[in-house]
Design a binder for these strands. Structure first.
Length: 896
RNA sequence: GGGCGGUUAGCUCAGCGGUAGAGCGUCUCGUUUACACCGAGAGGGCCGGCGGUUCGAAUCCGUCACCGCCCA
């Protein structure tokens, strides 16, 4: 063997990953008797490449999967990608544009062929990158949201929900993205604060020359489509105008002045213009008052006059209005404001900050647009999902996210599921010549339905639109398992155990999977939803291309190794916190990987080799038993942390055990026992225990740092190559007299610590060893001194350790350890004044503590009301403080 | 406007009724059977402000301030 002096992740990672993958180590086994453990990957967009958010979520998932797999669960981590309708279509359209082509010229079929071709060439980027991270996904089961099986699931669901009346067509306002020219759902709209203006417009009162009603608006360009003015019924001034009519400027339409509580008397003038076709609130007002709803913007949000032609035809002077036709909404706004000002119909302009809805993909302001779209009745589907979370059938971790989930679900709006795109699941609906709709899984089914309806064959045309990408994502937890076929996998792996994802897609995805899972499968899709934070840069800023602070996880992997990145992520992932991450943090945690590597090298150099015959329960040496006992604690801590998704505590438990217990003390204290001339039986036991615990460490840490642990496992021969991934998660081992071993090692560690501390404070150079004398030592301490003499010499720079029988030599430094006073005769090396100050400082600190303690115990309220054990504990502590003060004082007195 | 989260050592964060902690950084010292991506030691905190509950509050309650998200 002989390990290299440095761990070389770049060489090791690809080799081990290939080894695992080709051995089928990531595969679940539907025929096994082991209890299943299922995690569904949040399918990344097929257009995606690995970013830090992926690195975070997939590291956590892989850690959980590897851990459960080692615990003997039949783990399924289901991979796949999402067809990402808009994103993918945009990518391919951009490619086409570079070739001077346009999808509309190509036609639907040719375009889709091109997208599939793109997918075949470039769609695998992210899955390749996930391998670099070490993600142990069950690759042969990889799915794509538009593959045949998943498409069948989509059709099945659509048809079922349609037949149940839960999917329907409706003509109402939708959020329209004029750039992408498609409807989008409420969730795809983000409000941005825009500094704009509030324009006050004068609308003349019909039949009362010189009288006006003044309306305030943020969108003057839509006034062409106004069909009323609304005022609050109790409005002090305008209330009197209710029932009268106003003349819409420029257009000349006569519009009613209606009473509606929507008009807020506190806002603007208390009168608002009503444009039912271009504002969600106005649409409702329009419905209440039965107003006409002419659209004056087209699909590209340019002015169109088609629907107000009837009014314009009779109008007096419409040249200006006609000049607006085809202009953009922004140009029209300026023109209309200028014209109104010219006509002295502009009262005033106030600066105004308003929330302008933008499409999250297209990035331009969306327009409310009156069209017919397909909707899903989310209100009905939400109820069982809400109940499932209320009753704990699905639990969110951290729990506070349940509130977010409830808030959205209890006020859920109809979900617009149709999109005017080409790339996606085409809506399985066909129209007859008279517009009748036939919803079916395929054209043949639709034809059968049509024949029954018409009594003859009629030509049917399929709906041009596709479904919202999230519709297929909502089915992911069961569609990937083969549903609607009743497969073994559906039977065995649904519902999943845990969904791991970010809070940003609770509404988009988690809520919808809950709704669809409960409705179509009759059960929740997962028992637990673990919500993690966002990855931010080192300063806590969100990573974005525009800020230029994006960190590429692949570069971090290249520089520091996948293990370092993964361990950093685990360490920084506390509950409900964002993860602030920069290269320097990863570099820091690489130190841990290196430390582990070097500890293993030391083990190797000292002949620690795995021995399957070794039984740790038979270990005799206190050092062995202490290490095994401490390892038990580490395993218990790590396991408990993973059970509750405390990745930070899991990482910390491993870090502490490896660095602070195994390296700092076990290996150091083992050195004398392994040295030449030491007892061969003792040395043999230490080697065996060391090898045993190193193997335990590798198993304990494998879920978060799989590569370095597997490499060491293989090199030491703990098992066959690439077998650590399948090794058993460590259990506690019985340790004889653990408490006694703990007490002894605790004493040795504190003794060495005290001596080191005194020497450092007294500036004694390490090159000058000193005798260590023990005064007032108990009998059992003498045995310890005997057993640990070599270690103390080595680690405390002691020339010798002896019991002090006579007086304390002149010029000694002293320290107190339990009932023992440690004496370091350092005449000439230390300054007595400094030593006096040091001892006095230690004493005074204890005096302050003891005083606080005494005050507490002197308080009758405390003694009578506090828990008995707390009182007892305080009494003991006070006693030990007082004893130590006395010893420090005695030490001080001896200095005189 | 409503809701959620945060405010603890220079930085990043644990702790969430009973002696204020870790990692990193800082300072001092140091190459000794692995590791300078190392070892030893030290310093560093009115636990955001103000009230309250309690024998006891970083921890529970109220309130305010600031920061960050989400929804209107």
């Amino acid at each position: 063997m002989t390990l290299d002096s440095r761990f070389a992740p770049g060489d090791v990672e690809p080799r081990l990953y290939t080894g695992w993958e080709s051995a089928g180590s990531f595969a679940c086994d539907p025929d096994s008797n082991a209890p299943p453990f299922t995690i569904m990957i949040p399918p990344p967009n097929v257009t995606g490449s690995l970013h830090m958010g992926h690195a975070l979520t997939f590291t956590l998932q892989d850690t959980l999967v590897r851990w459960r797999r080692m615990q003997g669960r039949d783990a399924l981590w289901q991979p796949g990608t999402d067809h990402a309708g808009i994103a993918t279509q945009m990518v391919v359209e951009r490619l086409l544009a570079a070739e001077g082509k346009d999808r509309r010229e190509m036609g639907r079929e040719a375009f889709l062929e091109r997208v599939w071709q793109w997918k075949a060439e470039s769609g695998g980027t992210i899955t390749t990158q996930l391998r670099r991270l070490g993600a142990s996904l069950d690759w042969p089961r990889e799915r794509f949201t538009m593959d045949d099986g998943l498409s069948a699931a989509v059709k099945e669901t659509f048809v079922t929900l349609y037949n149940q009346g839960l999917i329907y067509r409706d003509r109402r306002l939708v959020n329209w993205d004029p750039k992408l020219q498609t409807a989008i759902s409420d969730l795809e709209v983000e409000n941005r604060e825009i500094k704009g203006s509030l324009w006050y417009l004068r609308y003349p009162i019909e039949g009362e020359p010189g009288q006006f009603i003044i309306v305030a608006t943020t969108r003057p360009e839509t006034m062409l489509g106004d069909t009323a003015v609304a005022v609050h019924p109790d409005h002090p001034v305008y209330g009197a105008l209710i029932g009268k009519r106003a003349i819409l400027p420029l257009v000349g339409r006569s519009i009613p002045i209606v009473a509606d509580t929507y008009a807020d008397p506190e806002k603007g003038t208390g009168a608002v213009k009503i444009t039912p076709a271009h504002d969600f609130n106005d649409f409702e007002v329009g419905r209440r008052h039965d107003l006409p709803m002419p659209s004056v913007l087209d699909r590209q949000a340019n002015i169109t006059l088609e629907e107000i032609e009837d009014v314009l035809a009779t109008g007096p002077d419409t040249a200006f209005v006609r000049s607006l036709a085809g202009q953009s909404r922004f140009a029209a706004r300026s023109a209309i404001v200028a014209e109104l000002e010219r006509l002295e119909l502009l009262e005033k302009i106030e600066p105004h900050v308003n929330q302008v809805p933008h499409g999250d993909r297209g990035g331009v302001p969306v327009e409310p647009f009156l069209t017919t779209q397909w909707y899903c009745n989310a209100g009905v589907l939400a109820k069982p999902a809400i109940e499932a979370v209320e009753t704990g059938r699905t639990v969110f971790v951290p729990k506070q996210w349940e509130n977010t989930f409830f808030a959205w679900m209890r006020d859920i709006q109809p979900w617009c599921i149709s999109r005017q795109l080409w790339w996606g699941h085409r809506i399985p609906a066909w129209y007859g010549p008279d517009g009748s709709v036939f919803v079916a899984k395929d054209a043949a089914d639709a034809a059968v339905q049509a024949r029954a309806a018409y009594g003859r064959d009629e030509e049917l045309v399929q709906d041009e639109d596709v479904l919202d990408t999230w519709f297929s994502s909502a089915l992911w937890p069961f569609s990937t398992l083969g549903w609607p076929e009743q497969t073994k996998e559906v039977e065995r792996y649904y519902p999943g155990d845990v969904l791991v994802t970010g809070f940003d897609i609770i509404f988009f995805w988690v809520a919808r999977m809950m709704m669809m899972g409960l409705h179509m499968m009759g059960d929740v899709p997962f028992r637990t939803v673990y919500i993690h934070g966002l990855v931010r840069d080192e300063k806590g800023q969100k990573m974005s291309k525009s800020r230029g602070n994006v960190i590429d996880p692949l570069e971090l992997i290249d520089s520091f190794g996948a293990d370092a990145l993964r361990f950093t992520i685990c360490s920084l992932t506390g509950p409900g916190r964002d993860v602030k991450l920069g290269a320097s943090r990863v570099q820091d945690y690489r130190g841990f990987v290196t430390k582990l590597w070097n500890a293993a090298r030391f083990c190797e150099m000292n002949g620690m080799q795995p021995d399957p015959a070794f039984d740790p329960a038979g270990a005799k040496l206190p050092l062995s038993r202490w290490l095994l006992d401490t390892a038990n604690t580490a395993v218990a801590d790590a396991t408990a942390a993973l059970e509750v998704y405390r990745f930070d505590e899991y990482a910390a438990a491993g870090y502490r055990f490896v660095w602070n217990n195994f390296c700092d003390w076990f290996l150091e204290l083992a050195k004398p026992l392994l040295a030449e001339g030491a007892d061969p039986a003792d040395a043999a036991e230490i080697r065996a225990v060391g090898a045993h615990v190193l193997g335990l460490i590798l198993r304990l840490l494998h879920p978060s740092i799989p590569f370095v642990t597997e490499e060491l496992w293989d090199r030491f021969g703990y098992g066959e190559p690439c077998s650590l991934i399948g090794a058993a998660w460590p259990d506690a081992v019985p340790v004889t007299d653990a408490a006694e071993a703990r007490s002894e090692l605790d004493w040795v560690i504190r003794l060495i610590g005290e001596v080191r501390s005194v020497r450092a404070e007294m500036n004694v150079p390490p090159s000058k060893p000193s005798p260590v004398l023990l005064r007032d030592a108990r009998a059992d301490v003498l045995g310890r001194v005997d057993r640990w003499i070599e270690a103390i010499r080595r680690l405390a720079r002691a020339s010798d350790v002896q019991v002090l029988t006579g007086d304390v030599p002149k010029g000694s430094a002293q320290a107190v350890l339990d009932e023992t006073t440690i004496v370091l005769p350092l005449e000439g090396l230390i300054d007595i004044a400094v030593e006096r100050t040091r001892l006095a400082k230690d004493r005074d600190k204890l005096v302050v503590d003891a005083k606080k303690m005494r005050q507490k115990l002197d308080n009758p309220e405390f003694v009578s009301r506090a828990k008995e054990e707390v009182v007892a504990e305080n009494r003991e502590r006070l006693a030990s403080f007082e004893a130590e003060i006395a010893r420090l004082q005695a030490a001080l007195d001896r200095l005189e």
